[in-house]
């Protein structure tokens, strides 16, 4: 009973996160300017990280959790680098 509720909620959450990834990917492909594409990429990796978390809950494996934290860290650094590149034209001054 309790396992059943968790399994169904994981399934619903994964469907919603997949839809969110599709929307962010659409904005990344379509976006009128470069800033929109970067924003779409940012949302895409955050949703991919959440998808990894739901996989970790389903399989009861903590390795997914660690990799999700690493994905979050690297994604933050990459979006900061993109923003600095758009603002100044170079990343390391």
């Amino acid at each position: 009973m309790m396992e059943l509720s968790i399994i169904w909620s994981i399934l619903i959450a994964q469907i919603m996160l997949g839809l969110a990834m599709a929307f962010a990917f659409f904005r990344m492909v379509r976006g009128p300017r470069a800033q929109d594409r970067i924003l779409g990429l940012d949302t895409l990796y955050i949703n991919a990280m959440l998808m990894l978390l739901t996989f970790g809950i389903r399989t009861a494996n903590t390795l997914y959790f660690e990799s999700a934290l690493i994905v979050a860290l690297i994604g933050f650094v990459s979006s900061i680098a993109f923003g600095k590149f758009l603002m100044r034209g170079e990343i390391i001054e």
């Binding site: 968790i6 969110a20 929307f23 949302t43």
Partner: peptide, 23 residues
């Protein structure tokens, strides 16, 4: 189990709303 299920659903709904806003 109920707490985890509720947190999962509400968090996924917020993420989906953020993506709809981006779209």
């Amino acid at each position: 189990a109920v707490l985890v299920a509720a947190l999962l659903i509400v968090g996924a709904v917020f993420s989906l709303l953020a993506a709809i806003g981006i779209l």
